[in-house]
Design a protein around this nucleic acid. Sequence first.
RNA 1: CGGGGUGUAGCUCAGCCUGGUAGAGCAUUAGCUUUGGGAGCUAAGGGUCGCGAGUUCGAAUCCCGCCGCCCCGACCA
Length: 510
Amino acid sequence: MHALKVTRAEDFPEWYQAIVREADLAELSPTRGCMIIKPWGYGIWERIQGELDRRIKASGHDNYYFPLLIPMSFIAKEAEHVDGFAKEMAVVTHHRLKAVDGVLKPDPEAELAEPFIIRPTSETIIGDAFSRWIKSYRDLPLKLNQWANVMRWEMRTRMFLRTAEFLWQEGHTAHVDRADAMDETMLALEIYRSFAEDYLAMPVMVGEKPENERFPGADCTYSIEAMMQDGKALQAGTSHYLGTHFAEAQNIRYQDKEGGLALAHTTSWGVSTRLIGGVIMTHGDDDGLRTPPAIAPRQVVIVPMLRGKPEDAEVSAYCQELAKELSALSAFGAEVRAFVDTKDMKGAEKRWDWVRRGAPIICEIGPRDAANGQVSFIKRIALREGEKVKTHMLERGAFIGAVASMLEETQTALFQEAKMRLDANIRDDITTFADLERYYGTDDEGGEFKGWARASWSRPTGAALDKVGEQLKSLKLTIRNAPLIQPASHAPCIFTGAPGVEQILIARAY
RNA sequence: CGGGGUGUAGCUCAGCCUGGUAGAGCAUUAGCUUUGGGAGCUAAGGGUCGCGAGUUCGAAUCCCGCCGCCCCGACCA
């Protein structure tokens, strides 16, 4: 009997929906494709924001804020960029409503001369500012970041993974030349890799996207890719070197040391609330989420087991005192987040609510614990022994002394578990397209776990690459990226048999 | 936008084929019992059966149209 009604093995998409709802992460709003993010989900996002913001600032970036609405003409400036985003844009055309026959409608008299689009990303409006701010080589590099909401009118949405509105961070930088901009692109990518692995306990493969998967308007795109528990890949972060495309389109020029006029080289990079979807599908189990302690809004939850009897007062006081002592500890370089759940409901139900949310340590304190100075607790990472919930017990001082290391060990163990899954499920033995067909082409609906393939290719371009894309699409596969770490020599290309030039990761993707 | 499924109480669903007073479990509220851990009994509240038009004496049920949601595609962080 698990805490969720559906198990991962029975129906992974249903399980995902169940965990989002049951762990109090988010729910669908009346606004099409948009989420209401609830406290446990938003609390995780706040932890993500806090730590990532610290790392972004520490690496020399400042925060700015640009408008939600972008003049429509701006988006038209970079041709590839328009093609990439035009189909999914929300447009603001009026500035007033009017009741016509009792029905509110945009007032025809109030149509805007130039419509606005709701930002799907901010390259164009930030580029416009860059063109005014950047005059001299002394103004470079310009490294900024913004935390914002963006909107893309997606045809099909999935909670956290693809919603019409989502929250993200977008870095935008300008540099004197390609080398400096590439250093920045790789710096952002490394921030994402280390953040995903250290803070989200989510191991990733870092690499360059093939030409057909690039961001619209980019010279090259890099990504971090994580493996979900159904074997699919999730693009968890991207970093783009934009070359001089946006600089040309928006006239971002500077006077160099020699007095000549040069185009700036720009970058952009972002991660979004999608990371939370990645955390769910990396660490969730059939009892709910197992929130990595570093990002858990509450790390130690204390549930008083009250009975409506006189000794309740002592139990409550004991719990409060325990929380106070735990809050004085530190883990992951910050105060331990301890919480006493005083809500007036049955203790057993509160326990299961916290199990589903994935609080790392859940203490259940009854009269006997209070009287004997001990702590009964469960560890969310290893909730059960067989079918039964495993309860641990420690003397109070011993428990307090062990909490910080338990949290840190939990973080490490979650990472190790996910890392082993990733490493064990990347196949290196696929050397021809026929191998790929054999592995991915059969028994699609059985729900059998299929991981990724690492194979050599000759990096075709243009029409040849399109053909490769079609071949892969027939197996519902995509090229995720070409890992940065490459072997010294390469086997023949699995698509063409030509000499291989690099290894790529092939997978089904979200 | 294509293919499939589905819309009935806060949630999960039955009832629909074969038209005849709106159902269950969970949740909520109240009372009693229980108390080392997802309790039991009793009672109560809660629904224009997705929306609109039609057939009929009578529609949750049959017919037509529309809409939402879920899954699989196309598109994408």
